[in-house]
Design a protein around this nucleic acid. Structure first.
Lengths: 201, 201, 201, 201
DNA sequence: AATGAATGAGAGTTCATTCAT
DNA sequence: AATGAATGAACTCTCATTCAT
């Protein structure tokens, strides 16, 4: 689903994904500046011309990477908890834990997302894709924060909307920090402080 | 002080700064990918060869930009309040307000800092410069948070270190969000929520 | 008869002609430089690989176009008047009129022939085909000019061979002119002058 | 004068001309299709990058060639006979002879001009340059034809404008013919016939 | 201190052609 | 008879950098 060329064989689809995967890895390693179509093709085990067969321009390829990266990120927040939230605090903890694990297990995802963010400022197509992702995330957070307030688990005076935005920004900023100072603060104390804030003691 | 070539005439110094300024602007507009020495020289009103006289390599120029950007950023947090903090809450508010104003008045600064962050992950020299900056910032925040706790303005159980890291990450994440969704949440409600968190009602 | 692959089914023949037709159109529109097998295939409604089934190489395809173009051109000069010419002046006028109409109705033919001419200088195979065409044309003109001289319609001292070559060159040059200055001179006055020249009043 | 970059050293100017010269030669040899910037640079004794320093795009280079070719062609028709024409018939003969010599001595000029003509149909900038050239040529011919009519050397009923266009087209067509059939008709008989036409016996 | 000219080493993209199916 | 996929070889153009002046 990286791109949506109407006619593409199952095999072709797999190839395209392999290409995106290769590009993803290279962006993680060398950033956007260091992204060379030739290297992507090499890593994907194909010829540059073949790469262009799947992604006519480098821009298209990058869009494919954005699509893959945001989708991969999305799987982080469970998503389909559209209705009831039994234990809001547990969900919050799980959420923080998932993010933590994601950063530890696949830090490249965040490196890439950060690279993409700088592009988002200039490329409307990318911006739209990333906006949708953060919006979903914020909505997800707001959902269980609201449930927590109603259940009396979180502070009754919590500004849910602001807090959700706050949490999202916090996560983003945390990851950004990690790029600059990989040896950052202990996350346990950090998370504990977040809980105290939301619970209000 | 943009760069530290010991020997440079006053006029030369001014030229070098003009060049860094030009590079800064171009990074803000087009990102790192779009940075061309030729364009920098053009904007600075000189010849490319002349640019290379001042900055032998592009890397040198970028280092100059990092240095200028971090310095410009540093002026944000008052800095010289090394000792007493009369009114911690006022300082917090002032701090949040300053950041807000900075984003509004010179958003390029953050765009550039974000670009630099992606580089920091790969370039130790840049990383060191950026680490120092965020470290100073965190120390500054921790300083007045501590004062606030001691003065009984903030929650007595506040984990000052974690909260300081939290606030810095929050700011960074907020700016990052702005790049993706320029039409962000109302900052007043956001700030109010931050205060409630720190004060604990 | 576009190409001469002995064995080709009726359907295959039709396909091949459709391909040549497409190539012809594209040469007219974009010239030789702009001729891409992919585009030809697209316009012919088939796949590039299929095109190569009919025309193994691009060169083969071009030869097919030459063949089609010269044949189409040939239909211009009546041709089979091998023996008697009743009214030489009428034939001349008809000839000039036919050329005029051809240019107006299908200018692409001349555009393509011109493109082919530049190739003829370098490709002996093409040169041979084009030589034959112009030679036939010249012979046809010489035929009725001779008849006209004998019938006393044209000047008795007319150098028939030279005049025939003259007329052919004139037509070619005229078309060439049209490419450069599409808004050319009125053809009536032009034709009248040609008549005066041949008749000698 | 190939291009008109405001600031260019005498040496730079010479280089640019050498490049155009090289391109001219290659077009003559291989046509437009065979024109490769790398080969042009090689023949001019410079690096491809240097070529692009003088001519940012291939299109620019081609325009340079057009400019050089038309200028070179223009020197054929004496030009500055703006006023009196003593001996129109002599001028005509001289004109025909000059063209003949030009074709013999530098046939590439015509090969190139023909290549350019096909481009003229698609590129307005080139078309304009070529139109101006043929227009000047036609005006020059008309000038001495008119003088000849007035002097009683040429037929009194000669349609000067049509005849001038006729002569220009004739020359163009003649050269075109030469590309297709290099072993063309004897030019003396051809020229004699032209004279008879204009003189009217 | 400054610049026009020059360049090596790519970069992205194109294209005729081939091959497995 | 037809096609999606694949490729080698090239092509135009770019860019940081150098050098002579």
């Amino acid at each position: 689903m990286a791109t949506d060329r109407g006619s593409r064989t199952a095999r072709g689809e797999a190839q395209a994904e392999r290409v995106v995967e290769a590009a993803f890895g290279l962006i993680a390693e060398r950033g956007f500046e260091g992204l060379r179509t030739r290297d992507v093709a090499l890593r994907a085990g194909i010829n540059v011309a073949t790469l262009h067969y799947y992604f006519p321009t480098k821009e298209d390829l990058i869009r494919g990477v954005v699509s893959a990266a945001t989708e991969r990120f999305r799987t982080g927040h469970g998503g389909r908890d559209a209705d009831a939230v039994r234990d809001p605090l547990a969900v919050l903890r799980e959420d923080l834990r998932i993010r933590q694990r994601q950063v530890e297990e696949s830090p490249e995802l965040f490196t890439v997302l950060l690279e993409l963010s700088t592009r988002a400022a200039r490329d409307p197509a990318i911006r739209a894709m990333m906006q949708e992702t953060t919006e979903q995330w914020r909505a997800h957070v707001a959902h269980y924060l609201q449930a927590g307030v109603e259940a009396g688990v979180f502070r009754p005076d919590l500004d849910v909307a602001a807090a959700a935005a706050h949490l999202v920004a916090l996560s983003l900023g945390w990851h950004l920090q990690m790029l600059i100072s990989p040896d950052a603060t202990a996350s346990e104390r950090f998370n504990a402080e977040v809980e105290r804030w939301l619970i209000g003691r």
